[in-house]
């Protein structure tokens, strides 16, 4: 029986977020909160491993109270249990402070049920760093395996995992001891529509919520803004480039103008049939 923990995050949907041009801040109202897309695949992979080997899927998040919604989404996918750490002291955390807080929560979860495997999404779409997963692995002193696009085998008795790590020009097959931490690519699986019983369970699901005071051995100076070595010095919209020439006239003429420009670089274009 495997115990797999997926670490997840609720994020603003940055694809539809609008920028306030005056303040250069994101207009939060324009961006609905969603489960980080990469994390849906992390949870789905955990659920698939549970189906394959038996066991329990736990999800863990750090966030403000509304992030409960993201845990419910994980329950729809098939997670069994959800934990959330939520406290003002966590606010303003960069990746180092985030991995610290999550690690404290993972320690507590592992006292309830020992953890065999941790899965994170490759990155979040708001932070775009991919640094929290490896950070957790280092803090727990377990091997981090990033960019995983296939789990070949988890052998709990043998204490090992075999996965594929995506490389720029292929993949590598890596064997690791358990427990270990995977960060997964989107291509690792497809997330199907959730079965009705999951949807019903999720609708009413209440995760366990811990404040800092519920966690053990916490050094408060390592939390939130205080525990973050990086700060955002400034946020700015890049200066608009000069802009190009917009071609004018009837469509035919515009296409002709463009052809004249392109054919100055004629040598670049392959002659059909590949004779160039």
């Amino acid at each position: 029986m495997l115990h797999v923990v997926a670490c997840i995050k609720q994020v603003p949907d940055t694809k539809v977020a609008k920028l306030n041009p005056k303040t250069n801040t994101i207009d939060r109202a324009s961006a609905p909160a969603i489960l980080n897309p990469y994390d849906t695949h992390a949870v789905e992979e955990a659920v698939r491993l549970k189906k394959r080997y038996g066991g329990t899927v736990t999800v863990l998040t750090m966030g403000p109270p509304p992030a409960v919604k993201a845990i419910r989404r994980c329950v729809e996918i098939g997670a069994d249990e959800g934990y959330m750490i939520s406290d003002r002291a966590f606010a303003g955390a960069d990746t180092l402070a985030t991995s610290y807080a999550l690690t404290k929560a993972l320690h507590k979860i592992s006292q309830i049920r020992p953890i065999d495997l941790i899965i994170c999404g490759k990155m979040t779409i708001d932070g775009d760093t991919g640094q929290v997963g490896p950070g957790i692995a280092r803090r727990l002193d377990i091997p981090p395996l990033t960019s995983v696009n296939k789990v070949v085998e988890i052998d709990k008795e043998g204490g090992s995992a075999v996965v594929h790590r995506k490389l720029e020009d292929g993949y590598e097959v890596v064997k690791s001891t358990l427990p270990c931490l995977l960060t997964v690519e989107k291509e690792i699986n497809e997330v199907p529509y959730s079965p009705m019983p999951n949807l019903i369970k999720a609708a009413r699901y209440q995760p366990t919520i811990w404040a800092v005071s519920d966690l053990e051995d916490v050094d408060r100076t390592q939390l939130g803004l205080k525990g973050s070595p990086t700060i955002v010095g400034s946020v700015w919209a890049p200066p608009k480039p000069q802009g190009g020439e917009i071609l004018q006239g009837p469509v035919n003429s515009q296409v002709d103008q463009l052809m004249d420009i392109l054919l100055q670089k004629k040598e670049l274009f392959a002659v059909k049939g590949g004779a160039s």
């Binding site: 977020a17 920028l19 775009d128 955002v232 400034s234």
Partner: peptide
């Protein structure tokens, strides 16, 4: 680029 690439952020580690 930050926040899904909508803006730029300058990050410091003082």
């Amino acid at each position: 680029p930050a926040f899904g690439g909508n803006i730029m952020a300058t990050i410091l580690c003082k």
